[in-house]
Simulated scan of single mutants.
Amino acid sequence: MGVAVFGYGSLVDPRSAAATLGRPVGEVWPARLSGWRRRFSTVRDNLTSEKAFARVSDGWLPPIVLALNLERDTSITADPPNGALVEVEPAELDRLDRRELRYDRIDVTDQVRAASDIGQKRTAQVFAYVAKAEQLAVHPPPGAVVLASYVAAVEAAFESLGRRELAIYRRTTGSPPVEVIDARLIRGEVPDGNPRAW
């Protein structure tokens, strides 16, 4: 029995997790997270943070880039977001904390249900990353965008789990609430293991 992280965005892709952990990641297990919803509600200041992106078409620098987040949702009709359990060593959580610098790591062990008995039995403790209070935007700020490269990476990650998982992802997330733009990295002081494409 070990420790796992509930990935609900780009971490669903074992290659993305491997880039952060610095080692190959084995099998990941589809799972659902009860009592939560997934939305594009994490904000990153595109002008002052560790990486900045400009729109390909005209060089415009959006002030804010949105990313996925988990928010509590205890309504009876809630459709829990899906994701994947990624096994990690406890010492590796620091690497993930550096990657997810706009998020707090929280224990969600009691809310996770793996799609397979193997996934459920192999993990004794499960963590997820939730936006820090100062990085949360319940309503998108003016000028906020979502990067097309991020949307593509997340959807590809879920599709690697199967078309059903991609369909669940789309159903439980909805469309980005702002414009999705093609952008390129123009400045990057990216911590090791932190993706450079979004």
Rank of each mutant, 00 (worst) to 15 (best):
M1G: 08
G2C: 12
V5L: 14
L11Y: 06
V12M: 12
D13P: 06
P14V: 12
S16A: 14
G22A: 09
G22V: 02
P24Y: 07
V28N: 10
W29V: 00
P30G: 11
L33N: 10
S34L: 13
W36A: 01
R37G: 00
R38M: 13
R38Y: 08
V43M: 13
R44M: 15
D45F: 06
L47D: 07
L47E: 14
T48S: 14
T48R: 15
S49P: 00
E50M: 12
A52L: 15
F53C: 01
L61G: 01
L68G: 13
E71P: 00
R72N: 05
R72S: 06
D73I: 09
D73N: 15
I76H: 11
A84E: 00
A91N: 09
E92Q: 15
R95C: 03
D97C: 00
R99N: 10
E100W: 06
L101A: 12
R102T: 09
Y103P: 13
I106V: 15
T109K: 11
V112H: 07
V112D: 03
V112K: 10
I118N: 02
I118D: 11
Q120F: 02
Q120E: 13
Q120A: 15
K121I: 11
V126Y: 04
F127I: 00
A128I: 05
Y129H: 08
V130Q: 09
E134M: 12
E134Q: 13
Q135Y: 15
V138W: 10
H139W: 00
V145C: 06
A148P: 03
S149C: 04
Y150R: 08
A156K: 11
F158D: 02
L161E: 07
Y169K: 02
Y169C: 04
R170S: 13
R171M: 02
G174T: 06
G174D: 14
P177F: 05
V180Y: 08
A183W: 04
L185S: 15
R187L: 13
G188Q: 14
G188T: 06
P191G: 12
D192P: 12
